[in-house]
Design a protein around this nucleic acid. Structure first.
Length: 908
RNA sequence: GCGCGCGUAGCUCAGAUGGCUAGAGCGUCUGCUUGACUCGCAGAAGGUCACAGGUUCAAGUCCUGUCGCGCGCACCA
């Protein structure tokens, strides 16, 4: 055995210091130039586009999880011979940024400055914040090709946006239309359906008189205009009359008979007639509203649900999606009147409530109606959900407005197949036909649910920060003409009064181009596009599957003929340790930068990927992170041990000698293959778990211990270097650091991922025997409360494994605390000995026995054996088992039974 | 209302295709301070696998139902 008495070049600290390591290592990776993806390489490409974070945002745990997962995949693929491209970038995040800048400038709204001034401020602000988010991403260790960094709002991406718009327009898939949209009164802009947040509210539900009809509504403020009263033609209604005969009302038979809310009416009213909705049609009348007398007429339509409300309703065509559709269908143009303006205030139609906010008007109108005797009753327990704007935190009103839409159901001729199709179909086919696989699979159902309900995508926004709609208007000889994509046509025709559309595009329009706009599209011959498109994996949080993933699929397939990626990997939300959502108010949030600084990036990465599964929440607490910090430190100290045994001057050699060498190599080979398999299937958690337990439970607990009695420094160095390669994708910093300490010049990531195939089943079995003997002796020592310092004598009956054990004598002595081991023909039980039977081998441990403890131990063991025997016997006595269970299982059961019996006998 | 998922040790979770004594991390208890590591070492305790039926030689695993939890979609009469 070689003493490492020579002075080491540099002593490694006792504890791993991530603080002094990580930033420096990242810099050295950047400087190496190895992060650059070579478009001319012959290697198979592997591409991930980083989901671009908001340029003005800061790194949160969701980003951290995303970066950890993607970085692991990228490093793994690089080490398995791929030309990897992980392309970074940031998003201009239209509404979000606009709001932040407005706040930053201390404006009430953006109109206090000019459009140009405002955009200049936005650009300035974005540029300032850009470096912060980029720096934070580097803290996680992300192996990104910064030379290709993109921005959703830079020139190249803007060019792609305009080109795409033009293409869609030419195919007739983009058009401007007057339609019902979601209007955020706070942001002063339209919102897409999926941008809405919903809030559960309990609001008063008013039942109002409208002529003879009772109608129900939450929105009392909208009951101020002429309207049809809609009834179901086949629905049954009752006419009820006061006992005095001075008033008659109509409501659905269902409400009258089944709805307890209306029970009180029975005191004063009696049914005088039952009719169908059809019988009521055609009736016209004038009736009082809170805003004066209005005209009403009765119309029948099947949309009316007889079990809702009173089976009758009036219509607010301009302020309700359903009503809008109904009015359109019934061709009631005159109903499209504006009761609420775009600032959320009542128009002159609202009479006494004009100028009030919707909220104020709701209360006031109800009050007036009550005074006028129009209010039948109020249901105070009515619950519903109300949409609001996630950015400005204000109410969203359905409004009719002129906007740009992408038609998802309109047919067009697909240039790649020359077949007629729709954008919706392209999205459906992507997943249905397996072009895009979603991990976990159950989200495919969610995806379809969304696509199937998909309506036209409203892409215009009334904000300033974003891609301006590439549509120009001009006049030629007094006639307005339009140019799309650029204004060149207009200039050619010498148009006058040229002006661009005022609106900007939904931020997701540019994001939807991300997988290919970053690679040079619309230039179809761009080398990057040829080499790295389609992408391999799109990894993101499941919450933006609709906003983003579905739309990338749509645009990618439409514009390039190829689906933009093969796999979609969806990670879950990071929650606190108890699985509760992190929130500022609860104070249970964790800032990734804080914990990176406290525990190191490797520990944070591990805690975000191990013990998690795609699509499920990622519970994270400091305990978990510190646990993985401990693991990282364990690895560091293993490295320290290796360095002490085999410094830089020792050459690594892959030749195993001792049984321990062969065992660890065999185990490593096995584990490495499993890890590889897991990573190929995107099962990062399992891969991490296997590495963790292999390093800690096998390499450190057994192999390093074995190295202390029988050292093979060059092999130790070899196996440890292989371990570092195995660990690198998950813990890039510590592994690279240790690699540098032990080996030297080249980067660890440039090495090949371990793929050794060394299997020696016999050695593994023999080593397991040694482990069992050691563990069993330790158990006895612990039960008998024997001082760990006290060395014991062990007698072993000679057996077929004697030479294996003979070879392992020093190891057995060290690990089990023995000073002498004798091999004897026969063993004699005597006082102060404990008999053991391990895999058919009899052993006798001489100890100062605590009789009582020993009896207790034996009784317990006997009991356990008896139970085992009982259950095994009953299994073997079962005819069905013998007949139907596979042969090898039956044999195994018999073998177990025999062994258990033998063991029990040895205890008697 | 429609759909998805979950309910396994004190806590957070693993447990393809049914088949050894149901596992891990953290926590708890006992002991140790051994020359890589107290961010450590050795050992232990702790589970009627939500409940009720069913299929099977065999169910944590498959089927049906019940209860509880989380989530998505739809939803302003």
């Amino acid at each position: 055995m070689r003493k490492t008495s020579r002075v080491q070049v540099r002593k490694m600290e006792k504890n791993y210091d991530h603080q002094s390591t990580e930033d420096q290592l990242y810099q050295s990776w950047e400087q190496s130039g190895a992060m650059y993806a070579d478009r001319n390489s012959d290697k198979k490409p592997f591409t991930i586009m980083l989901p671009p974070p908001n340029v003005t945002g800061h790194l949160h745990l969701g980003h951290a999880a995303m970066l950890a997962i993607e970085d692991i995949l990228i490093r793994f693929k690089k080490m398995t011979g791929h030309e990897v491209l992980w392309l970074p970038g940031t998003d201009h995040a239209a509404i979000a940024t606009e709001n932040v800048v407005i706040k930053h400038l201390g404006l009430k709204n953006r109109n206090e400055v000019s459009r140009e001034e405002f955009l200049t401020e936005c650009r300035k602000f974005a540029a300032e914040k850009h470096d912060r988010i980029v720096g934070q991403m580097k803290k996680m260790g992300a192996w990104l090709d910064w030379s290709r960094e993109a921005y959703t709002f830079d020139d190249a991406r803007s060019h792609a946006v305009n080109t795409m718009f033009r293409k869609l327009y030419d195919d007739g898939l983009i058009a401007k239309g007057h339609r019902m949209i979601n209007w955020s009164t706070g942001a002063q802009s339209v919102l897409a359906d999926d941008e809405l947040e919903w809030e559960d509210l309990k609001e008063p539900f008013y039942y109002l008189k409208c002529g003879r009809f009772i109608i129900g509504t939450v929105r009392s403020e909208t009951k101020c205009s002429d309207s049809p009263v809609i009834v179901n033609p086949h629905g049954k209604y009752v006419k009820i009359r006061t006992k005095a005969g001075n008033e008659e009302l109509i409501l659905s038979q269902y409400a009258w008979e089944e709805n307890p809310l209306f029970a009180f009416l029975k005191q004063d009213y009696d049914v005088v007639e039952t009719v169908t909705g059809h019988d009521l049609v055609g009736e016209t009348f004038e009736y009082e509203t809170y805003a004066g007398k209005r005209k009403f007429w009765v119309v029948a339509d099947n949309v009316i649900d007889m079990e809702k409300g009173t089976g009758a309703m009036t219509v607010s065509a301009s302020h309700s999606e359903d009503d809008y559709e109904l009015a359109t269908r019934l061709n009631l143009q005159e109903l499209f009147v504006q009761k609420i303006d775009f600032h959320g205030r009542m128009t002159e139609l609202a009479g006494p409530c004009e100028g009030m906010t919707v909220e104020e008007a709701r209360k006031e109108s109800a009050k007036i109606m009550k005074e006028k005797g129009l209010l039948v009753m109020i249901d105070k327990n009515y619950q519903h959900r109300v949409p609001f704007c996630y950015r400005s935190n204000s109410v969203v009103e359905p409004m009719v407005s002129s906007q740009w839409f992408i038609s998802v159901e309109k047919e067009f001729t697909d240039q790649w197949t020359s077949k007629k199709t729709t954008l919706k179909k392209l999205m459906q086919e992507a997943v249905r036909d397996g072009h895009v696989k979603i991990i976990p699979k159950r989200f495919e159902k969610t995806y379809f649910q969304w696509i199937d309900n998909l309506r036209d995508w409203c892409i215009s926004r009334q904000i300033w920060w974003g891609h301006r709609i590439p549509v120009w208007y001009g006049e030629v000889r007094g006639e307005e003409i339009v140019a799309v994509g650029s204004d060149e046509e207009l200039k050619k025709k010498n148009a006058s009064n040229i002006r661009q559309d005022e609106d900007t595009l939904d931020t997701w329009f540019s994001s939807a181009l991300w997988p290919f706009s970053t690679l040079g599209w619309p230039d179809e011959f761009s080398p990057d596009l040829q080499k790295f498109y389609p992408n391999d994996v799109l990894e993101t949080g499941w919450d933006i599957i609709f906003f983003w993933v579905a739309r990338m699929i749509m645009f990618g397939r439409y514009a390039t003929g190829k689906y933009p990626f093969h796999h979609v990997y969806l990670h879950g939300m990071v929650t606190d340790a108890k699985g509760k959502k992190m929130s500022k108010s609860k104070g249970n949030g964790i800032d990734p930068l804080d914990v990176i600084s406290e525990y190191g990036a490797d520990a944070v990465r591990l805690s975000l990927v191990i013990g998690t599964s795609p699509g499920n929440p990622i519970p994270l607490g400091k305990d978990k992170i510190s646990g993985y910090r401990n693991f990282v430190n364990k690895l560091w100290n293993a490295g320290r041990f290796v360095q002490m045994q085999a410094g830089k001057d020792v050459k690594a050699s892959d030749t195993p000698q001792s049984i321990a060498d062969k065992w660890i190599l065999s185990r490593f080979s096995n584990v490495a293959q499993e890890v590889k398999k897991h990573l190929e299937k995107y099962e990062i958690s399992s891969a991490g778990d296997k590495i963790y337990h292999f390093i800690w439970d096998e390499f450190c607990d057994w192999y390093i211990e074995a190295s202390k009695v029988d050292s093979n420094p060059s092999f130790l160095k070899y196996i440890f270097q292989e371990i570092l390669k195995l660990t690198h994708p998950l813990c890039p910093f510590i592994s690279e650091k240790l690699w540098g300490e032990l080996a030297g010049e080249e980067l660890l990531i440039g090495q090949t991922f371990p793929s050794i195939d060394f299997r020696d089943a016999q050695v593994v079995e023999n080593f397991r025997l040694i482990q069992t003997i050691v563990t069993d002796i330790r158990k006895i020592r612990s039960d008998q409360k024997i001082n760990p310092k006290e060395k014991l004598l062990l007698n072993i009956q000679k057996n077929k494994k004697s030479d294996v054990l003979q070879e392992a004598l020093p190891l057995l002595k060290l690990l089990a605390g023995l000073n002498e081991i004798q091999f004897l023909e026969t063993l004699h039980s005597e006082k102060n000995t404990v008999k053991l039977l391990i895999e058919g081998i009899s052993l006798l441990l001489k100890i100062p026995v605590d009789e009582e403890a020993e009896i207790q131990r034996q009784t317990k063991e006997k009991q356990l054996l008896q139970n085992t025997i009982k259950s095994l016997e009953s299994r073997l006595n079962n005819k069905g088992y013998l007949e139907k269970a596979p042969q090898h299982l039956v044999e195994q059961t018999q073998k177990e039974l025999e062994e258990a019996k033998k063991k029990l006998l040895s205890l008697q």
